[in-house]
């Protein structure tokens, strides 16, 4: 399974590198969201700085939908999805590979967004370990849920609207836990965020396990 996962992740990342969709569209989209939040809340740093964590993660969530949709759009063109099924790759490996590729893309996005948020909202990115750990765990959870429901919605004629409808309610725990963990890190109290990190870890592990088992039937029905 791990060999197949590495193969699929490598393929998806190579496609993204060649197409630059993430770099040219998803990153600017996420930055624009942060700017719009800033405009909506006004220039006061006393308002913006405490809201940084929540705004950051809302921007990540919205961008995650685009990344997942893109991940399945490349399988829809020219019957590539059928080719993937015919390849004989392990379905669990395909799931882990696609989720890993989405995770990698979102982590790059989060680095950019973190810098933009620090500049726009005057946030101090202290507690780096807490921030980084919550990014990795939360992103793994988002990618796992997104890949699972991306496969579920990929065969639907209303996939563009169905995916966000399924995705956002399910990842509400990730939004809450990641925001709390980030707030703990930004406020220089990383110890208070450890519980939230545990929530993120359990969520990611649960959905990675569910996805590994359930992805095969979803791929066949899609």
């Amino acid at each position: 399974m791990w060999r197949d996962a590495a193969l699929v992740a490598g393929k998806d990342l190579r496609i993204e590198w060649r197409s630059r969709v993430g770099l040219n569209q998803v990153v600017p989209f996420a930055v624009v969201i942060l700017v719009l939040f800033g405009l909506a809340l006004g220039p006061s740093r006393r308002v913006l700085a405490p809201a940084t964590a929540g705004l950051f993660w809302v921007a990540v969530l919205l961008s995650a939908v685009l990344a997942v949709q893109r991940s399945f759009a490349v399988e829809a063109a020219d019957g590539a999805g059928d080719g993937l099924r015919l390849s004989g790759l392990d379905a669990g490996g395909i799931f882990v590979g696609k989720a890993a590729a989405v995770t990698a893309q979102l982590l790059v996005l989060e680095v950019v967004l973190g810098v933009v948020a620090a500049l726009l909202y005057a946030a101090h990115l202290s507690g780096f370990v807490m921030l980084a750990a919550s990014c990795v765990l939360a992103t793994a959870g988002l990618a796992a849920v997104g890949t699972l429901y991306g496969a579920l919605s990929a065969g639907s004629r209303v996939r563009e609207t169905l995916l966000p409808l399924l995705f956002f309610p399910l990842v509400a725990p990730v939004l809450i836990a990641a925001t709390k963990a980030w707030q703990a890190g930004l406020q220089g109290r990383p110890g208070s965020g450890l519980g939230w990190l545990s929530v993120l870890a359990v969520f990611a592990a649960a959905y990675l396990a569910i996805g590994t088992v359930a992805f095969g039937p979803l791929l066949e029905d899609g």
Binding site: D4, L7, K11, R18, S19, D78, A80, G83, L84
Partner: peptide, 25 residues
């Protein structure tokens, strides 16, 4: 299976498409 569609990834090169399909199989 050689179907009506080619099962190719648009953004990958010819060689990359072949390499992926062969390694997957």
């Amino acid at each position: 299976l050689l179907g009506h569609r080619s099962f190719l990834y648009e953004e990958l090169s010819v060689e990359d498409n072949l390499r992926f399909a062969v390694r997957a199989a």
